[in-house]
């Protein structure tokens, strides 16, 4: 019998199969990424009386059921102006405190003051541990100690004699009503984020000579300690303390 030639496999339908797969993936997948603002809900605690906050330390951004906007009792139309108000809130007293205006004060802390505080808290922790206090309270003190250590690192990085800090109670409040459209709520978040980004970006360029977005991306990828210190410094200079007030029924 003659040797039979092995026939070649017909690959003509390969393209059809690949097309089929391609179309399947086109239909079941999406290009857009999920983008969002990450926020924290405060932990539930029983408080007998809320702490009084000075009026100058509050930046209340409000919207009512008709989606009308108000910042610090001033009604305005254009939601794009919210970021300007936020910038004003942070920047007014940044260089020089002026008690006559209605914006949060800045404090300046020196290295020796930070060291004193660290020493004081360390002594306190030692005492507490000897006395066998509850773990919650001791942990709270440890957190405080961490904060101060962070400030110490930040000031070293800042390179100045004193570290400017906005008042601890300075906060931005988002107050909406039941029927306020989500788009307005999201716009407020967006504007606040934009203002804080601008502030941090300015300081990042001045101190480290690079845009904040670059620093942030690098930190997200590598999680290096030096980037962490830079991010901490910028967060201490311009903290984002946002309070979302639950609307009344």
């Amino acid at each position: 019998m003659a040797k039979r030639e092995i026939e070649e496999i017909n690959a003509g339908s390969m393209a059809d199969i690949a097309f089929l797969l391609l179309i399947f993936f086109l239909v079941t997948t999406t290009m857009d990424k999920d983008q969002a603002y990450i926020r924290n809900i405060p932990k539930k605690v029983e408080v007998s009386k809320p702490v009084d906050v000075e009026k100058r330390n509050i930046l209340a951004i409000k919207a009512n059921n008709q989606n009308q906007l108000m910042v610090r009792d001033m009604i305005f139309e254009d939601p794009n102006k919210i970021s300007d108000f936020v910038l004003e809130f942070y920047k007014t007293n940044e260089k020089k405190n002026d008690p006559t205006n209605n914006f949060p004060m800045y404090s300046r802390i020196s290295m020796s003051a930070i060291d004193q505080n660290i020493a004081a808290i360390e002594a306190e922790i030692e005492q507490m541990e000897e006395a066998g206090m509850k773990a919650d309270i001791v942990n709270f003190k440890y957190n405080q100690l961490d904060e101060w250590e962070k400030k110490k690192r930040a000031l070293k990085l800042y390179g100045d004699n004193e570290l400017p800090e906005i008042h601890v109670q300075a906060n931005i409040r988002i107050e909406v009503q039941q029927a306020t459209a989500y788009s307005i709520f999201a716009k407020m978040q967006s504007e606040i984020e934009e203002a804080i980004f601008e502030l941090r970006n300015g300081e990042c360029e001045r101190l480290f000579g690079m845009p904040y977005s670059v620093l942030k991306r690098r930190f997200d990828q590598d999680k290096k300690a030096e980037d962490q210190a830079m991010m901490d410094l910028l967060e201490i200079l311009y903290p984002a303390r946002i309070i979302e007030v639950t609307p009344k029924k």
Partner: peptide, 8 residues
């Protein structure tokens, strides 16, 4: 306690 508001 961690939430996120999705936007485009």
């Amino acid at each position: 306690l961690t939430i996120a508001y999705a936007v485009r």
